[in-house]
Design a protein around this nucleic acid. Structure first.
Lengths: 192, 192
DNA sequence: CGCGCGATTGAGTAATTTCAAATCTAGTGG
DNA sequence: CCACTAGATTTGAAATTACTCAATCGCGCG
C-alpha cells in the first residue's frame, strides 16, 4: 500500500515497526470517483478517513436546500462527520469528493482498538483535534471580521495549492459569499 | 477548595482518590474582578483555565481596533489561547472577565505532568478538544447560514442561561453584527 | 445628583444578494 | 472528431440587508 499514512504518523510520533504494522492493519483503502459521496446525511458514520489522494468537501444543506461548506480536505488531512463519528449517531453532514479520491478508512471499533493497544496514539489524535480547533477559530474570525473580498484574498494567501483545484462556485459556498459576488472580485484582481 | 473540578472530571473519567489528589495539586485558584484580563495579547500564555465561577470572553482586536469575540466561557468550561498555550508562543487573543471570575489554572508543565502520570487523562482532553471542534463547526455554520436576526434567535435558544449575563453590545461582537442592528431585532421580538 | 455605560432610534449609505440573461468550458456519446 | 449538454462563469440591474454616524434616552452606582 503506497500511502502517505506512515510518514504522516512518524512526523508526529515515534513508532516501532511492529506498532506501525499493527496500526496499518486497521486501515483499509477505499476509492471514490468525482462527485461520489463518502458520507451522506442521515446515514450511520462508522469510519474516520485519512485522505491519501484527492480532494473532498464537508458540507451541510440548510432548510432552503442551499449547500454550505464547512471545510475542504486533501492529501494528509483527516475528515469525517466528527460529531456522528464520536457519538456514533447518524450524519448531519455530507462528505463528497471534488476530485477522484483515495481514503484510508478507520472504523470506530478499530480506532478504539488502536487507542487501547498503543496509548501514545491518543496524544496524536489529541494534537490533531487541537489543531482542528485552532483552525476553526481562525475561520470563525475570518467569517466575522472580513469583507467578502478580504475573505477571498485571505483564502488565496492561505491555500494557494487548493485554490486551482476548486470551482469558484464551490469556493463561494465555503466563504459564505454568493458566486456572483466572488466572480466580481475575481475579475477585478485579474485586471491588475 | 470548593470547586466544580472534581465532579467535572469524574463525570467523564473514573479516577481513584490518589489520582484525583495528584491532579488537584497541579491546579491553583486565581480570582479576577470584572474587566480584568486573564490573558492579554502579546503576553506569554503558560496556563489553561478551568472556569470555576464567573464568565469570560475570548476575543481579538483587528487592525481597526474593533473587538471580535471568539467565544464565551462560564462555569464548567475550559478556556485559554489554545494556539499560544499548545505551541508555547505569545498570545494573539485576549481573555477578559465579564463577571468576577474564579479560575483553576493549570500550567503547561503541570498539564504535561498530568498526561505523563495519568495517561487516561489524555483521553479526557481529547474528548474536550473534539467537542470544541464540533462546537466550532456549528458556530461556523451559524455565521455562514443565518441572517443577523436568526443568529440572535439561535443564540437565545442555545444559551438561555448566558444571555442575561451578557450586555447586548458584547453579544453583538460575538454574533458578528453591529449593536444597532441587534438592538432593532431585540425590540421587535419584545413587541410580540 | 451627575457620570458613564449600555440601549435605542432615525436617516443615509455601503456592501452584498437576488434575479436574469448571456457566455464559456469540459466532458460525453455518437 | 464533432455536436451536445450540464455545469461554471461573467455581467448588469434592482432589491435587500446590515452598517455607520449621530443624537437621545435610561439607569445604576458612587
Amino acid at each position: 500500500m503506497k500511502s502517505l499514512l506512515k510518514e504522516h504518523f512518524l512526523k508526529n510520533i515515534p513508532l516501532k515497526d511492529e506498532q506501525w504494522n499493527f496500526i496499518s492493519e486497521q486501515f483499509h483503502s477505499k476509492k471514490f470517483k468525482k462527485k461520489e459521496y463518502i458520507i451522506r446525511k442521515d446515514e450511520a458514520v462508522s469510519e474516520i478517513y485519512f485522505i491519501n489522494s484527492g480532494l473532498v468537501k464537508l458540507s451541510v444543506d440548510d432548510q432552503n436546500g442551499n449547500e454550505h461548506i464547512i471545510s475542504f480536505a486533501c492529501e494528509d488531512w483527516w475528515e469525517t462527520d466528527f460529531e456522528a463519528f464520536y457519538t456514533q449517531k447518524r450524519a448531519t453532514q455530507n462528505l463528497k469528493c471534488i476530485e477522484e479520491t483515495e481514503v484510508l478508512a478507520l472504523s470506530y471499533q478499530d480506532y478504539l482498538k488502536i487507542l487501547k493497544t498503543i496509548p501514545e496514539m491518543t496524544e496524536f489524535f489529541l494534537m490533531k483535534a487541537v489543531n482542528g480547533h485552532i483552525a476553526n477559530q481562525k475561520r470563525i474570525l475570518s467569517l466575522m471580521t472580513f469583507s467578502a473580498q478580504k475573505k477571498y484574498e485571505e483564502f488565496v494567501k492561505s491555500y494557494p495549492q487548493i485554490i486551482q483545484r476548486i470551482p469558484k462556485t464551490t469556493l463561494a459556498l465555503y466563504l459564505g459569499v454568493s458566486r456572483e459576488t466572488l466572480s466580481r472580485f475575481f475579475s477585478e484582481s485579474q485586471k491588475l
